[in-house]
Simulated assay, not measured.
Amino acid sequence: MGRSFVEYGAVAARAALADAGLQWRDIGSIVGADTVRGGYPGYVAGDVREGARLAGGPGCERVRSVRVRAQAINTARAQILSGLADVVLVVGADAAPKGFFRPAGGDRPDDPDWLRFRFSARPIRRTSGCTRVGGWPCTGHTGGLRAGQGEERRSGRAQPYARYRKPVTAEEVAASAVVADPLRLLDICATSDGGAALVLAGHGVRTSARVSDPVRIRAVSTVTPRYPNTVLDLPDIATDSAVAVQPAAETFRESIARAAYQEAGIGPDDLSFAEVYDLSTALELQWYEDLGLCGQGDAAKLLQEGSTSLGGRIPVNASGGLASFGEAVPAQAIAQVCELTCQLRGVAGDRQVTGARVGIAANQGLFGHGSAVVAVR
């Protein structure tokens, strides 16, 4: 804690290169997932200067570099498929402030993210709007939340990179402070520092000798929200007024899943496991349904049956999820794909999903954007 995001990213990048058996000179491009909390104005983690700093080696200032946010893995894959690079390093890192996230950079009335915070609830103290947590009860699967709390959260115990590894009981969750009813403090992930990195390579590129059967990306789905729900991810509210509108045929999370399944040529029944964006317990339950792991309204039942636990029909967040890592925003989606890779290689240790062959990682971001990655072995 307390270090620059560049330091976290450099550590993750070196570990990824070592795992692939590559050197800095083997990298043809660096894609950085950006952050607004690096001490600079704007989004800088993946620009040319920061790409060189992350690389930390001689000559790396000549490497192609790009900065993105939710599109880091997709951008790297596109560069490989287009022939711009054979090997691409993807890095995401953040040094987050304590407490709940809030908009950076002051008042920005033309910025949908700023508007989301300002209009999602009444003012708190002297700040405009509310923390993001205040809006979750409007969007998360709170109907089955209490029923879904009856299982001990223990996945992080087997995750060596987890920040929180102590098991949390249902009684401890119920005894924690209410933050946004019915969400309690231990229903919500913490903010965190951290970094994650991946090496993507084209077919025929030789990496580590021990990776004789590489994990392959079968699909990358990125979906924008459907008008008029483009600013506030709230049900049936237009962006320019408080007038109710016709609900969309599917949620943006369902759109993410559908696009990923279509590109990969699979369905939810083909999955061995899933990694989902669990900012809160309610949101994890919602992902069960939107990924098609169960029917609508059956998420709490799926959890209570043990189907999403290690050894169950469809393990979810065997990594421990954000509940164990905390939220380092530019790193979290990349870290999910790192977990897909470990599971599909069969090297996840005590958290290994038996016979893992197909995995999906699903994430979401500002005002209704999201992405999913399907990987296979």
Rank of each mutant, 00 (worst) to 15 (best):
A72K: 09
G39D: 09
G39I: 11
P41V: 10
G56S: 05
G56L: 10
V44A: 13
C60Q: 10
R67V: 01
G59K: 07
V48G: 00
R77A: 14
A45I: 03
R67S: 12
R62M: 06
R64W: 15
I73S: 12
R64G: 09
G51I: 12
P58Y: 08
Q71K: 00
G59F: 09
G57A: 15
L54M: 10
D47I: 01
A78T: 15
R49E: 04
R67L: 05
A78R: 13
A52L: 05
R53L: 15
G57F: 04
Y43G: 02
V63I: 15
V48P: 00
P58C: 01
G46W: 02
G56R: 01
C60M: 13
E61T: 10
Q71N: 04
A45W: 06
N74F: 07
G57N: 03
Q71S: 14
G42P: 07
A70K: 02
A52V: 03
A55V: 05
V48S: 09
G59A: 05
G56H: 03
G46R: 01
N74T: 02
L54Y: 04
Q71Y: 12
S65A: 15
A72P: 05
A70L: 12
A52M: 09
E50L: 09
A52R: 15
E50G: 00
A72I: 07
I73E: 12
R53F: 09
A78M: 13
P58K: 06
R49M: 08
S65R: 09
C60A: 09
V48A: 14
G59M: 05
A45P: 08
A45D: 01
G56F: 13
A52H: 14
R62N: 11
E50Y: 15
A55C: 09
A72D: 04
P58T: 06
C60I: 00
N74M: 03
V44E: 12
Y43T: 03
R69K: 00
R69S: 10
R62E: 08
G59P: 02
P58R: 05
V68L: 04
C60G: 02
V48L: 11
R53C: 03
R67Q: 12
A55M: 14
N74Q: 13
G42L: 08
R77W: 14
G56V: 07
A76R: 01
N74V: 00
Y43R: 00
A52Y: 05
